[in-house]
Design a protein around this nucleic acid. Structure first.
Lengths: 152, 152
DNA sequence: GTCGATGCAAACGTTTTGCACACTG
DNA sequence: CAGTGTGCAAAACGTTTGCATCGAC
C-alpha cells in the first residue's frame, strides 16, 4: 500500500484504512455496521487473494453470526465504492482484494499456481488492442491462464 | 493419426471432419454413438462459440432425447482428444469450438461484445511472461476483458 | 421513525455425478 | 458378452434474491 504517493489521476482514490473505507460507505448513504467493520478488517489485514468463503470464515472467527450472503452483499457494495476489486483466477470462486493492490495475474492451469503480473507487462497488448480494435483491456479482472515453469 | 494435409508442427493435429473425429474417438477406446455424431455435426457446422446448452438445443432438433448431461460428457471427451476446446468469455457459461479454430478473445465487460483476437497480438506478452516468469501463456482459454469502443 | 442492513432459506445458472438400463464393438 | 455410453434425477458449486426482522442514524 503506497501511502506517500497517491495514485495519479484518480478522483476516487482507494481507501487506505478501515475507517477511511467506512467513511466512504457513510458518505454514500450506507450505514456503518459491525459486519462491515469486520469484513474490512479482514480485507485490510494480511492482504492476498481471498474468496468470499475465506473472508466469511475470518469474519466469523470474531462474529459467528455474520452470514455468507451478507459477505457477498458487502463485497458488492465495497466494490461499487472502489474500495476493493475482484478477480477471476480460473475456474472456481472469485477472489477479492483491495483496489489499491490491483494487478494482473498469471495462473497455471495445471497446478493452480498464481503469479502477480506487473501492469507494464500488458502495455504492448493494451496498445495494439486499442489501436487495432479500439478495445481498452482491463488486465486485472480475469487472469491470464497458461503453464508455470514446473508444469510446462 | 496424421492425414493428408496436417497443420504444421502438431503431432495430434485437430480433426477436420466429423468422421475423422469419430475415428479418433474409436481409436481411443470410445464408441461411436449417434449422440456423438450429432454433437460433432453441430460443432463442425456454422462454427462460432456455442455453449453446452446451445449445442444441446441443436442436437435435440434432430435427436430430442439426447440429454444435456450427455452433451457435457461428450464435450469433455472431445476436448480430451483435442478435437475441440472451450473458452470462458466472462461470467456465464463456457463456449466450445473446434480446436482448429482456436484464438484469443476480447470481451467487453459492459455490453458483452466479443472480438476475436489474432494470436500475434499476444506475442509480446507471451515473450515477456516467458523470460521474466518462465510462464507460458495460453491466450485462448480465458478471454481478456475490457471495454469496447462504444462502452469506453 | 425511517430506511438501510442482516439472517435465513430458498432459488439461481452451470456443471457434475450416481445409478440402472441400452447400445457398440 | 464385456464394457462403454446414455437418460434421468439429484447433487454440487458459487452466487443471488425474497422476505421478515433488526439496527444505525
Amino acid at each position: 500500500m503506497t501511502r506517500s504517493a497517491p495514485p495519479p489521476g484518480n478522483l476516487d482514490a482507494p481507501a487506505t484504512t478501515v475507517d477511511e473505507a467506512l467513511d466512504r460507505v457513510r458518505r454514500n448513504g450506507g450505514r456503518v455496521t459491525s459486519s462491515r467493520r469486520f469484513l474490512l478488517r479482514a480485507l485490510f489485514t494480511a492482504g492476498g487473494h481471498r474468496t468470499a468463503e475465506e473472508l466469511a470464515a475470518e469474519v466469523q472467527d470474531q462474529a459467528p453470526d455474520v452470514h455468507l450472503s451478507t459477505i457477498y452483499r458487502n463485497l458488492e457494495e465495497l466494490e461499487r465504492l472502489g474500495v476493493i476489486v475482484h478477480a477471476h483466477l480460473g475456474h472456481g470462486p472469485a477472489t477479492y482484494h483491495l483496489a489499491s493492490a490491483a494487478h494482473g495475474h498469471f495462473v497455471c492451469e495445471v497446478c493452480g499456481t498464481m503469479i502477480e503480473a506487473p501492469d507494464q507487462l500488458f502495455g504492448g497488448l493494451a496498445r495494439t488492442a486499442k489501436t487495432e480494435f479500439s478495445f481498452t483491456i482491463d488486465p486485472h479482472h480475469f487472469a491470464v491462464l497458461g503453464r508455470c515453469a514446473r508444469c510446462s
